Simulated assay, not measured.
Amino acid sequence: MLSPVVAGVDGSPESLAAAEWAAREAVRLGQPLRLLHARNWHPHQREAEIAHAAGRHLAQRVLRQAEERVLAACPDVRVHGEQVEGPATAALVKAVNDAELLALGSRGLHRITGLLVGSVALGVVAKATRPVVLVRAGSAQGAEEAPGTVRRDVVLGVDVTEPCDEVIEFAFEAARMRHTQLRALHSWRAPDPLTVGPGEVGLASDPQRAGEWLGFLAAVLQVWRDKYPEVEVLQTVVRSRPAEALVKAASGADLLVVGHRLTDRLRMPRTGPVTHAVINHVTCPVAVVPHC
């Protein structure tokens, strides 16, 4: 049985964009699309039956609207909608752990208050054991599908000191399916002279350091370049903070791929600082791929 692509929908413009993005991805993968709407209702709650029926009716309307949106964008997608009861974060985490991936709407930072909007998305990213793709409204239009348009790149953030196969493979596969270039990026920072130990080269020039980091990046990616010879790869290293470098690199990209280390189950799940920053500021879809 094929694992579905799942999209969480709540009727917002962001969730509709996520559903459309998920539909295109499902077609690329040759897999079905499952639209999921979670209602915060529990049978033990003392809620009037009329309110319960109204909630179900609203959920059906949300699912119908999302289905119409995805079929208009991707007529060939195999789609079905489903509503579940319970807290949205828990329901979506359960759904994605049995799926190929999950697409969710993302609002990033509120333009006026500067506060993060979308705690459900952050909660799912922190706990999911499968890839989660966060999509902004207006970023799922599939410009790569239009004749005569330039195909947009897939951007991959790589930490060459702790490379992760799951994250790299996801990015290469995404670039292969889109027939587009993969831009692999590693950011580095010059060592603090006060912390340089005996025998360490602390005064090397920036070009020397950049060349060394580029060599490390090339070594990390070589096995994947051999596995995906059809994918054109641009390897880049920049002297910058990782989040700043990724936000800049992802401008105009089709997809940004970053990793998320799963924390110890005894600790509270959370997103790392780089992942948290790109979720807030990057406007293209962001794939967060969990790894150990």
Rank of each mutant, 00 (worst) to 15 (best):
E47G: 11
K94C: 07
H42A: 06
R64T: 09
E47L: 15
V62C: 06
A88T: 08
H44A: 12
N40I: 01
D76A: 09
R56F: 05
A53K: 10
A51Q: 12
E47M: 15
R69M: 02
R64W: 05
V93D: 04
E68C: 07
N97D: 14
A48S: 12
Q83P: 01
Q45C: 12
L58V: 01
A99L: 15
R56P: 01
L63H: 03
R61Y: 05
E82I: 03
I50R: 15
A66M: 02
L92Y: 04
E47F: 14
E47I: 15
A95N: 06
A54H: 13
A51P: 05
A73H: 09
R61K: 13
E67T: 10
A54M: 13
E85F: 10
T89Y: 05
A66R: 00
V93F: 07
A91K: 09
P87Q: 08
R61G: 06
L71M: 05
Q65S: 15
E67L: 07
Q45P: 09
N40Q: 06
D76H: 04
R46N: 14
G81T: 02
V77N: 00
N40Y: 03
A91D: 06
I50F: 14
Q83V: 00
H57C: 08
H52K: 12
K94M: 08
A73I: 08
V84P: 11
V70R: 01
L71H: 01
V77Q: 00
A72Q: 06
A48G: 10
L63I: 01
A88R: 04
E68T: 09
H52N: 11
G86Q: 02
H80A: 14
I50N: 15
R61C: 05
V70A: 02
Q65G: 14
G86D: 02
A48K: 07
V84F: 12
V70M: 03
G55V: 01
Q60I: 01
I50M: 15
H44T: 11
H80S: 15
E82F: 06
A66I: 00
H57K: 14
P87I: 04
A51R: 09
L92M: 07
N97I: 07
C74F: 02
H52L: 12
A90K: 09
R78H: 08
H57Q: 13
P87H: 08
C74R: 03
R46G: 12
A51N: 13
H57V: 07
E67D: 12
R64G: 10
A72Y: 00
L71A: 03
H80Y: 14
A53R: 10
W41H: 07
A54S: 14
L63P: 02
A73R: 06
I50S: 15
V62E: 03
A88S: 08
R64A: 13
R61H: 10
A95M: 05
E85M: 08
V93W: 01
E82R: 10
Q60E: 10
V93K: 06
A91Y: 07
E82W: 04
R64E: 10
H44S: 10
R46I: 09
V79I: 11
Q65D: 13
V70T: 04
R46M: 13
H42C: 02
A66V: 00
Q60A: 12
E47D: 13
